[in-house]
Design a protein around this nucleic acid. Sequence first.
DNA 1: TTGAAAGCGCTAACAA
DNA 2: TTGTTAGCGCTTTCAA
Lengths: 333, 333
Amino acid sequence: MATIEDVAKLAGLSRSTVSRVINNHPYVTEKKRQLVYDAMRQLEYHPNSSAQRLRTQKTNTIAVLVPRLTNPFFPLLVEGLEEVAVENGFQLLICQTQANEEKELSFLHMLTTKQVDGLIFTSIENEWSTVEPYMQSGPMVLCNEYRSDVNVSIVRLDQVKGSYLGAQYLIDKGHQAIAYCGATTSELGRDREKGFIQALAEAGLSLKKEWYFDNLYSIDCGKRVLRNILEMDPNDRPTAVFTGSDEVAAGIMKEARQKGLSIPKDLAVIGFDDQPIAELLEPSLTTIRQPTKDMGRQTMEVMLSMLTNEQKKHPYERKVVELPIELIKRESV
Amino acid sequence: MATIEDVAKLAGLSRSTVSRVINNHPYVTEKKRQLVYDAMRQLEYHPNSSAQRLRTQKTNTIAVLVPRLTNPFFPLLVEGLEEVAVENGFQLLICQTQANEEKELSFLHMLTTKQVDGLIFTSIENEWSTVEPYMQSGPMVLCNEYRSDVNVSIVRLDQVKGSYLGAQYLIDKGHQAIAYCGATTSELGRDREKGFIQALAEAGLSLKKEWYFDNLYSIDCGKRVLRNILEMDPNDRPTAVFTGSDEVAAGIMKEARQKGLSIPKDLAVIGFDDQPIAELLEPSLTTIRQPTKDMGRQTMEVMLSMLTNEQKKHPYERKVVELPIELIKRESV
DNA sequence: TTGAAAGCGCTAACAA
DNA sequence: TTGTTAGCGCTTTCAA
């Protein structure tokens, strides 16, 4: 492999001049610039990325932590993140945590080893107290999932409103017995619960403990929920289910059909996300639309502004962005 | 940030000894090893990744080129690739080409700039002649898509058999008028076409030009196909469609319902991939199952063996792995 | 078993 | 406008 030294020799110039050409610096005469280009081409020279990183202390890479890419929500988010990153000369390092605390920690490590310039969480597995120390190694932004009581930049949705809209719609459609699929472990999950309960309360209803399903995320989880519902007393079981994701909703619907239930007649189902699958299901899925890709774009913009401010030696400024969320009415309710 | 020098000083030892401890070399007394560990902990020292890379000329990172992550086939493939990579201390750099030639080229570049140790294609956008020169910069493996006439390692499926099975099944079910959604641009696409035509030929049938839809990949593409079919003469139009992906099949089915067609009565549909969505559709989708995740695992194993052989200064040995493919019968045919 | 020293390939401050 | 020079932080001979 040719090095900058080889190019300099061949061009009859110094390494500095070659470096200036590589980095598009001013104050290089056109003639010498050409000399350098010729030499680079002749030697098939390409600057060594590790050397550049070591010297500049920058990687132009941003880590994005996602639980798993097989959940279609995240590829969409990544698409938004990546668009803005690439527009600004940055690269993404996509890290699947598999919802595993240790894996997440190992990725956080990349910030301290200077393998990445910044890090974006789209979900958080560890306690914030164990994450926080890593903030001194580089900028972090929370996207989607959040912690409102800590000093970190956040781009998120109004989850309270999301579930409120869903519950209200079910109630408007005459449902009184509504099951809930949620997650108690995250603030996002607790906010959704808040909105859901609020809508119920305004209608004089409350959430039954036995109708609360916790910690669900997959199609199979959804199927299990449906089977659980079927095991309940037929005279006292939910007529509608609010779910935390289109996957779970799809699982419920699939299993319902399997068991001979008709949707929405026997059971109304409402999803969350508005993934492509929502429209394809039969009946098509009523769901809460998240502006996923836009959330990605905005997150990356916050991250890049932090990286830029950092260069100006300004302290990081906390930004909180909240994006709108809406109900998409289809046929499953 | 603490450096190795700081650790050495605090421990009262040399940089070399600290380095040996970091890299688990033998010949360090337990006592000094502890001294080093203590110093590292005290200083919160973490080796700088760029420096290690520059010095060792290794990144322990492998680039994986995918067209886009929003096609669920690829996250599944990546999962397999990543499992094996992580098991062996390697990291994945996932690169979305957006099916764009220039983007692909820019990622190939990472091999020459030593940003990655090896590169895996899951689809190829450029001519092989423009890709080939990059092989001298590091090992490459083709996964899923392939070029049988070039000297590169490949892990792939028997595509001829895949489409043969699908076509044969449709014919067995009594279909004579079968539309085909394919791709002429890749060898994979041409092989599928081969198998399809072969099955037809054995039944004394042939593929109508007007029933050939080229270059389709998304749900919307599928919808368009269905509309095209409906514009045909009702007395001379396909009774079945063979598609190149579950997405396209889903689009066709969705639009068919929209237009009042019943599946499979009015139109039989067969997919390709067996993604989660295949089972969820109504009716559920008959499709060709690809052992996607396993294909990923095997690909990474080939890549790692090349990386290892490289260290032994052996020339790369071309490996070709072909995985089985099967027909999953459901309700859409 | 340990340390000294060289150098991976690059950028940037400084001098000219 | 260009070149000289000093490292960035690490690993790895080589010698002790």
